[in-house]
Design a protein around this nucleic acid. Structure first.
Ligand SMILES: [Mn+2]
Ligand SMILES: [Mn+2]
Ligand SMILES: [Mn+2]
Ligand SMILES: [Mn+2]
Lengths: 218, 218
DNA sequence: ATATTTTTTTAGACTAATCTAAACTTTTAT
DNA sequence: ATAAAAGTTTAGATTAGTCTAAAAAAATAT
């Protein structure tokens, strides 16, 4: 069984590697984990001995099939808990991440299966991120940054790329939410900012930066 | 903030001291924590330095006001989570304790307040044990072991003294639950075993040992 | 009142996870 | 092609929590 810390490292490596496809460097891991490279090297050896990652000295790590599976289970728990907090306990979507960071480490298969059932088997979390099923399968929906869209098509907001509390609060304030219908009214060539219409009701301006962080389907 | 381990020690000391009234010995703590006396001595010093217990060398420890308060918050979380697991996730009462041992250490005041509200402010957990409120207050109901009862009075099962999974499973099997109405049909002087009637429907025999573990109001 | 037994504490060691500083590799720049 | 810079690993320490074995104190028995 993995320790709390091992789970966190493995999850970080999984995310940094684009769900396990590319190799990840020691310093990248140190950066996201808020630790020093020396500590990462130590942990890397441990995870490597457990066959959760493939480690080549000085060339970073790649997650193994088994490691990916373990990481997916942590991600699954994290996202199910976030969904629980929002749907059942009335948390707002900017309050859930830190608590889910703790809850994701609770060890009980029964618990997570019952929770999944209680929530009626959700497929996305409050930030629009997919929830791996019991076996680790993810149903990805092709999404593009709103900043890449143009024209008058009907656009639906699907997820946020990076869900920092301040960005999420900002979205709530201007009326953007997962599932919202938006259309692009105007695009400023100079700085890439957009004027959009939300739910045919509300007109708002958003920066290119914000638009890059919003993933949508056309 | 207390560590996971400090919380566990403090809770154990709280329980062993009858909610904080009497002093507790090093060996008692070692016994319930499944550690060695030497480890307990170390931890005792730490908790004492934090003013959560009063420690006098060779004479055991007494919990302080502040320590009692911290312990009560852990107990509160433990029992709220157990209630959640049974009432919302359909766990049975013999499955919840070990998971609650983990969940009780999640750090989030908001979470526990929202959970309390979601459960509609329960006052007892699935085993009939009182749930401390937000401020730590407990409303104790005077209860006696069923083994101390006699006569034909109407008796209500209120809680179990020690809720081991096997005892709880046994109770479920014979039809005893928290809130059940029982009356004593016969008491065997020789071994203290009882014949009882549950909900005016079912007759069962139980041993003195079982009767001592069932707390009731007359 | 002493001796024996039991309990508790101390001393020293171990593991997981972390750090700093130094050594070593790889990458980049001239 | 070589030197400097950047990134990575190793060496050695630290902290929390644990252990065993030995020393010390308290309780119990004669
Ligand atoms: Mn999150
Ligand atoms: Mn985590
Ligand atoms: Mn319990
Ligand atoms: Mn616990």
């Amino acid at each position: 069984m993995l320790s709390y810390t091992e789970e966190n490292y493995l999850k970080a490596i999984y995310h940094l590697s684009d769900s396990g496809s590319k190799a990840v460097s020691t310093s990248e891991i140190a950066e996201t984990m808020n630790t020093k490279a020396a500590s990462v090297t130590d942990m890397i050896k441990k995870l490597s001995n457990k066959n959760l990652i493939a480690y080549e000295k000085y060339y970073g790590v790649k997650i193994t099939k088994q490691g990916r599976q373990e990481a997916l289970m942590v991600v699954r728990k994290h996202r199910l808990w976030e969904t629980f907090l929002v749907q059942k306990l009335q948390f707002s979507w900017d309050e859930v991440h830190d608590v889910a960071e703790q809850l994701e480490h609770i060890q009980s298969t029964l618990l997570i299966e019952k929770l999944d059932e209680f929530l009626e088997f959700p497929t996305v979390d409050p930030h629009g991120h997919p929830i791996p099923d019991k076996s680790g399968k993810i149903t990805e929906v092709r999404q593009v940054p709103l900043s890449d869209c143009s024209g008058k098509k009907k656009i639906i907001v699907r997820s946020v790329k990076h869900g920092s509390p301040s960005f999420l609060q900002y979205l709530s304030k201007i009326g953007v939410y997962i599932g919202a219908n938006v259309s692009i009214l105007d695009k400023v060539e100079f700085d890439g900012s957009l004027e959009i219409m939300i739910d045919s009701k509300k007109k708002v301006f958003i920066s290119r930066e914000a638009a890059q962080n919003l993933l949508v389907t056309e």
